[in-house]
Design a protein around this nucleic acid. Structure first.
Lengths: 351, 351
DNA sequence: AATTTAAATCGAAACGCTTCGACTAAGCGC
DNA sequence: GCGCTTAGTCGAAGCGTTTCGATTTAAATT
């Protein structure tokens, strides 16, 4: 593999001159530039990133702190980071995937090893030790999501509180009054998950304002727990005619529980969730949902980080994207007077 | 950030001694080792990867050559590489995500920049220029998938030919005789996609052996084309009672086309595909499918590469995983004599 | 024509590590 | 007691860049 010295020799100039041609840090005469470029082309020279990084502290490598296994890997997360990867690649950065198994220690290691210039965090908690640590270190990073106190940090997040309200409101306008909410567990408090907490707030607020019962069940994120929780909701509230849930991972177990009750969606039972369109359209029936702008968030998150790294902005950009309802085929009208299919069935069965 | 020199000074030894303590390349007395380790701990020292890599040519960074946009990002692919990422992380490697937009040139750049020790390829074609280039360079890599000629390369692949046969056979045993196949386009020939070609071979072979009509439609991988192709199949062959398709990306458009015909799955129409379980279980109804062992393939692929890098094996390992059918709820029995729902409907409508 | 200024280039010192050759002080056989 | 090995350590030379004076050359100013 040719080095810069080879190029310099071939072009008959000093190594530093070659470097200046490449970086543009100092003026170089046109004639010299031509000769150097020719030599580079002839030799098939590529600068060595390690050496460059060692000398200049700039590696053009960004790490994506990837959520570990707990919550499972969701379709939305896939979209987040394939979008992020795309932007990084366009801007000439390489993307390092970092699965943060080992907690804080691991992330510090990453920052100290010198390979990575900046970090993009996903699955940020309200009190996130990673964020504290990075802040203390003054290490450059941006977030998809946000903590409770985000002074001086760039982030892009989604307005889950409004999103849930929109779900509820839509169902309410369709005539539903008994709406169940199935939301991720927001505990443990000290590191609670923002979207869960904010969803709870939104749901409670809407139900109080609308004067309808606040029916809620929180569950762990795994399939099994979600499945049980859905069944428990349906058991405990026979008057339910609709359900709101908040993630693509809940989709399968929730729908299964509903089907097992012989409730048809949307004829007997309405369902709204917060999903990326790609996923919502894959379901049968296609699900009416709040559009989770996963691709947009991935793009913006990466863009924010890169801008910060390149020093274009000193003031952090903080963005909370507004929700938008996309009506598909998982909800139906329910009037006040009408007896729900479920109630009718219970009645027939003599319960 | 402390350097090795700082550690050496603190421990009262030479820099090289610190290096030997860390690498074990030469014997170090127990007393010295203790002192060095203490100094490292006190200073919170972490070796700089760039410097290490520059001096030693070992970076512990692996790149995953990530499929570009054409085929879209599928759930299976997500599983491939989150599995790969997991293994890499366990073995102390960092995973660089590389979206191969710029074709061959890009990949060469990656190899020449010195950052990356080895490559894991996904979405390998039968004749893959990337593979040719890497082979010519003698650059270490492994594949998920395989080309036509794989001499000297480690890979893990899935037996798509047998997989399709298993699909067909299962449907055949349920009594289906008119089975449609919806498969990715295997052209252009010069870089054809292995799974597509092998699926075609498998399907044709089974149909010939079983003496049933060989009903097939190839389509591009995008949603729209798949949707049209599914409709065309259903149009052209009114006697169809079952369909086989090969990827999670086809799922939504295929199911939608089927639903639009007012065919119920599985009562009126049976469906089998090749999917990771996680995905198959998310559908409504859960899909009977050949299990695509995506996680296993990701694990093994990465493991093969790392073994190769660490010199444990000189002989390449080549693995083709066998298919396994998982019965869920998307297929139903069809007897010879029974008139299909669809035929019955056509009849009623006087066609 | 003498002097100042700017453009273009060079040489060498980092950057933080690995690795090689050399040196010292033991331990060993004879 | 003499050379011989070997464990343990050190110093210094890279690895391939960037970057900072310093130097040379050409152009501009007086």
């Amino acid at each position: 593999m040719p080095t810069m010295a080879d190029v310099a020799r071939r072009a008959g100039v000093a190594v530093s001159t070659v470097s200046y041609v490449l970086s543009g840090a100092r003026p170089v005469s046109e004639r010299t530039r031509q000769r150097v470029m020719a030599a580079i082309a002839e030799l098939g020279y590529h600068p060595n990133i390690l050496a460059r990084g060692l000398a200049s502290k700039r590696t053009r490598v960004i790490a994506l702190l990837f959520p570990s296994g707990t919550r499972g890997l969701s379709h939305d997360q896939l979209e987040f980071f394939s979008a992020a990867a795309e932007v990084a690649s366009q801007r000439g950065y390489a993307l390092l995937l970092w699965t943060t198994l080992g907690g804080d220690a691991e992330i510090l290691r990453l920052t100290e090893e010198g390979l990575v210039e900046g970090l993009l965090l996903m699955e940020v908690r309200l009190h996130d030790p990673r964020v504290e640590a990075l802040k203390a270190l003054g290490y450059p990073f941006a977030m998809i999501g946000r903590t409770e106190c985000n002074d001086g940090i760039s982030y892009v997040d989604f307005d889950f509180e409004q999103a849930i309200r929109l779900c509820d409101q839509y169902l309410y306008e369709l005539g539903h009054r008994h709406i169940a909410h199935l939301i991720y567990s927001p505990v443990p408090i000290e590191q609670s998950y923002g979207p869960a907490v904010r969803s709870l707030v939104g749901a409670r607020a809407f139900c109080e304002e609308a004067g309808i019962p606040y029916i809620i069940r929180v569950s762990e994120a795994d399939i099994e727990a979600t499945y049980r929780a859905a069944h428990e909701l349906l058991d405990s509230y026979p008057s339910l005619t609709a359900m709101v849930f908040v993630s693509d991972l809940q989709c399968a177990p929730v729908m299964q529980a509903i089907h097992e009750r012989r409730l048809r969606v949307p004829e007997d039972f309405s369902v709204v969730s917060i999903l990326s369109s790609r996923f919502a359209e894959m379901m049968a029936p296609p699900l009416t949902a709040i559009e989770l702008p996963a691709v947009e968030m991935g793009h913006i998150g990466m863009e924010l980080l890169i801008r910060y790294l390149e020093g274009d902005e000193c003031v952090p950009t903080q963005l909370v994207l507004p929700p938008r309802l996309v009506v598909r085929q998982s909800c139906s009208v329910r009037t006040h007077t009408e007896l729900s299919m479920q109630e009718a069935k219970c009645f027939q069965e003599g319960r």
